[in-house]
């Protein structure tokens, strides 16, 4: 799929869409297609970001958000994988809970934010509440369907060799499910990045979501865009890291 030597031509080709978008962003305000007060040329917003980095003002927000994302994703992964394995392994539990999960999955975490605030105020609990809600379902449902899809003949074959239930669970079901677990974690990662913004928009004092919202309220529009660009970079980087980990653990898969 991928060649070992770095392919600049290919990278350039794959960046065409991005480059066109940035060019459009650059010229649209300059040519007066959009109100320059609301959207500045990309170079200006980018410089605002550089500025925020140089004067150190970005980092408290960035680190705060990274911390929340890391913790939220860790929580979602632990609970999601744990529950997913349980639900996938015990079909009866699955039958009892599947409908509930399918409905929960459709309920937007953002709609639940007011409910969390009602119960827990503007606390970290509320923030992790919506982040967890947003990111739990992909990893949970991917894990349980992964367990369900394990090739039965693999289980039978190891059982016929004398493998105990425990051995089969940890040495057959778990490794066979890993690819789907990782797919779930990757999806959950994106949801986490989305949810952290919302969580930080209300009742937070730090974080990229706060930076974006507060910059708008303070009429610092370039800073607002700088925050948005940072969030995009965070999302892409997180995905990149998760893909790398996934590759490392599932290198046996047919390319």
């Amino acid at each position: 799929m991928k060649s070992k030597s770095f392919d600049y031509k290919k990278l350039l080709f794959r960046s065409i869409g991005l480059i066109l978008f940035l060019v459009l962003w650059e010229i649209a305000p300059r040519l007066g297609w959009v109100k320059r007060l609301y959207l500045q040329p990309f170079s200006e917003d980018f410089m605002a970001l550089v500025h925020l980095i140089l004067n150190g003002k970005l980092f408290p927000h960035l680190f705060m958000s990274l911390e929340r994302i890391a913790l939220g994703l860790l929580l979602a992964t632990i609970i999601g994988v744990g529950l997913g394995l349980l639900v996938g392994y015990f079909q009866r539990i699955n039958q009892a809970l599947d409908l509930l999960f399918q409905i929960f999955r459709q309920v937007s975490a953002f709609a639940l934010f007011p409910v969390f605030i009602l119960f827990f105020g503007f606390s970290e609990v509320s923030k992790f509440g919506i982040m967890l809600w947003a990111s739990l379902w992909p990893v949970l449902l991917n894990t349980s369907s992964g367990v369900h899809d394990v090739d039965a003949v693999l289980i039978r074959s190891v059982k016929s060799m004398g493998g105990s239930k425990l051995y089969i669970f940890f040495r057959v079901i778990l490794p066979a499910t890993l690819p789907q677990i990782f797919t779930g974690i990757r999806l959950s990662g994106s949801y986490c990045v989305m949810a952290v913004v919302v969580a930080e928009m209300i009742g937070a004092k730090r974080g990229l979501g706060y930076l974006v919202f507060n910059s708008r309220e303070s009429f610092l529009y370039p800073d607002m865009y700088a925050g948005i660009i940072t969030l995009a970079i965070v999302g892409v980087t997180l995905n990149f890291i998760l893909v790398a980990i996934e590759k490392r653990f599932t290198s046996w898969r047919v390319a």
Partner: peptide, 14 residues
């Protein structure tokens, strides 16, 4: 006892 299946049943990650 040991069984050999038509579909090999090798563990693909090993």
């Amino acid at each position: 006892r040991g069984i050999v299946f038509q579909s090999y049943a090798l563990l693909p990650w090993r």
